[in-house]
Design a protein around this nucleic acid. Structure first.
Length: 517
RNA sequence: GGUCCGUUCAUCUAAGGGUUAGGAUACAAGAUUUUCAUUCUUGUCAUAGGGGUUCGAAUCCCCUACGGACUACCA
């Protein structure tokens, strides 16, 4: 097992087959937090060994998404503008795209054949499909293992000269791992503890394929993790079933002394129903499953992103961190730095977590109210410009001060503050019915003349003047204020009337009162 | 079907043999407010089921049920 003094090196190794979804971001985050906490290195490696599923733009998306989240790789693909292709001090193991490391894997595959841990298999995909179908008809499952490998065309059954000939002339062959027939493999997982599996239930996985001269995940992953001196593999639970194979691979290569520790993270599940979270759920339930917006290059279909939906990256990350991990205290709000010091694999939860969009919104709300009025104004201004509202940053900041505790997103600001920028064009019928009585117009006229005399037009002065007038005439304060609000806001909502009045200033307030009378 | 992993309020989770099973979200009620919201207070709600072990089990063991992942020349 890993030495205590071993340098911590972890990697996030996604496959560029589409946009990174929030489960992937969480895996990246946990890797990052772990590395940071121990002063280790966080590496971003791209596992693009599946030529058939490559999606243009996906790699760039992954890099951008991590950037937005504030998850900076120390090594590997550290940024869109700095893709390490050459070895240098910061990138001792370049390149970090597996497609560019092609040449490396074949020799390792052959090493395993040489040492008797693997063999060449000459089956075509079609012939295997046929075998699978035949087994299915008999209600059985075809497993490529010790029971069948001796009956198929492999380097284990064919004469050596024919094997050599076929290797030279044919393209349809692969290297398969020779899974031991009956061996208990005991593995250790940092989150789950000991797991034991008998190899009899496992199959002879393809390690390398001549068809595209590329390794499969299993080989590429083990070779790269070894070569890059990875100390801890933190990945999704979907990899747990192949952990025995990975253990056996380390053993076959003779790398057990530097074999990394493993930690398998539980999956993110659908908010409702069953199963793991998918793109469909987001569309169906109305929340993003991707950090950034994504347009599918083939279908042109657009998937929304947390960034575009108005989430702050800090809130997004905080929410993700608490999904499947907890600090053991009652603290819920964590900055990235706080997460770094609080995080620990020992407090990662074993069971799958159903994703909860409500909680995500709550996190954003918490972060929104910690922002300064000026910061929020800068974020709100573009929305205002879009609506053709000309205003100043100072005025907008003051408005933000009044509404920030009422919103979860900046995009909700307009709904809450339109009356600060434009006079009402319609009046809420229900509120009118309730608060607009036959005597109200007269009341408002009086109010207008009271306001007219207030100088300077400050909250205190207005409040004092209005209250004095109400008391002198023994008026109902509710009736006055509600009608006043209707004139200025157009509905029964909004900040304190005297604050609104000061911001809007005397002229505008009087104008809005007159419109209704 | 087989293998592996998992199971505490509706949801995220705490409690590593002894608590009235705690917190947060959501929901509901009340208080506050000139309105709406905020805020505050309170409330409803959980150890999947069955067997053991033990003075004592959410916690340890077994079985069952349920859920999930995997079972490709995909990752």
């Amino acid at each position: 097992m890993a030495l205590k003094s071993r340098k911590i090196r972890v990697r996030f190794a996604p496959s560029p087959t589409g946009p990174l979804h929030i489960g992937g971001v969480r895996t990246a985050l946990f890797n990052y937090l772990f590395a940071r906490q121990y002063g280790g290195t966080f590496i971003l490696r791209i596992e693009d060994t599946d030529s058939g599923r490559f999606v243009p733009g996906a790699e760039e998306y992954i890099i951008k998404a991590l950037q937005w989240c504030g998850i900076r790789p120390d090594e590997g693909l550290t940024g869109a503008d700095a893709v390490a292709e050459q070895t240098d001090a910061a990138n001792p193991h370049a390149p970090y795209r597996q497609s560019q490391r092609k040449a490396l894997y074949r020799q390792y595959a052959e090493q395993l054949v040489q040492s008797g841990h693997a063999y060449y298999a000459f089956d075509t995909s079609e012939s295997l499909d046929t075998l699978r179908k035949q087994a299915e008809e008999k209600k059985e499952t075809f497993t490529y293992n010790h029971a069948v490998r001796t009956q198929l065309q492999t380097s284990l059954t064919l004469p050596a000269d024919e094997v050599a000939h076929r290797l030279k002339t044919e393209k349809q062959w692969v290297v398969r791992f020779k899974m031991p027939e009956n061996r208990e493999v005991t593995m250790h997982d940092l989150i789950r503890g000991e797991i034991t599996v008998n190899t009899a239930t496992l199959d002879d996985k393809v390690l390398w394929k001549m068809t595209d001269e590329l390794p499969t995940y299993h080989l590429a992953n083990i070779v790269d993790d070894h070569v890059m001196d990875i100390s801890h593999v933190i990945r999704g639970e979907e990899w747990l079933p192949s952990l025995p194979l990975h253990y056996l691979l380390y053993e076959a290569f003779g790398w057990t002394d530097t074999q990394p520790e493993f930690a398998h993270l539980s999956l993110l599940l659908k908010p409702d129903g069953k199963g793991k979270l998918s793109k469909r759920d987001g569309d169906r339930l109305g929340f993003p499953v991707f950090p950034l917006e994504w347009t599918d290059p083939k279908s042109g279909e657009l998937s929304r992103g947390y960034r575009e939906d108005g989430y702050f990256p800090e809130a997004f990350i905080n929410m993700l961190a608490l999904l499947g991990w907890n600090p053991g205290t009652e603290q819920e709000l964590f900055s990235l730095d706080e997460l770094v010091s609080a995080f620990g694999l020992d407090r990662v939860v074993k069971s799958g977590a159903k994703f909860n969009p409500d909680k995500a919104k709550w996190f954003n709300q918490q972060y929104l109210r910690t922002k300064s009025n000026e910061e929020l104004a800068q974020l709100y201004l573009p929305f205002l410009h879009e609506r053709g509202v000309a205003t100043s940053a100072e005025y907008t900041a003051q408005v933000c001060g009044f509404i920030k505790e009422r919103a979860a997103f900046v995009k909700d600001f307009w709904e809450l503050s339109a009356y600060f920028f434009v006079a009402p064009t319609s009046y809420d019928p229900k509120a009118m019915e309730k608060h607009w009585k036959p005597e109200t117009p007269n009341l408002m006229k009086q109010l207008a003349s009271v306001l007219e005399t207030v100088a300077p037009f400050t909250t205190e002065n207005i409040e004092q003047a209005v209250h004095q007038w109400i008391e002198r005439n023994q008026l109902n304060i509710g009736a006055v204020m509600n009608a006043f609000r209707l004139c200025v806001v157009g509905a029964s909502k909004g900040a304190g009337m005297f604050e609104i009045a000061v911001l809007l200033q005397k002229e505008e307030i009087l104008r809005r009162i007159r419109v209704l009378n």
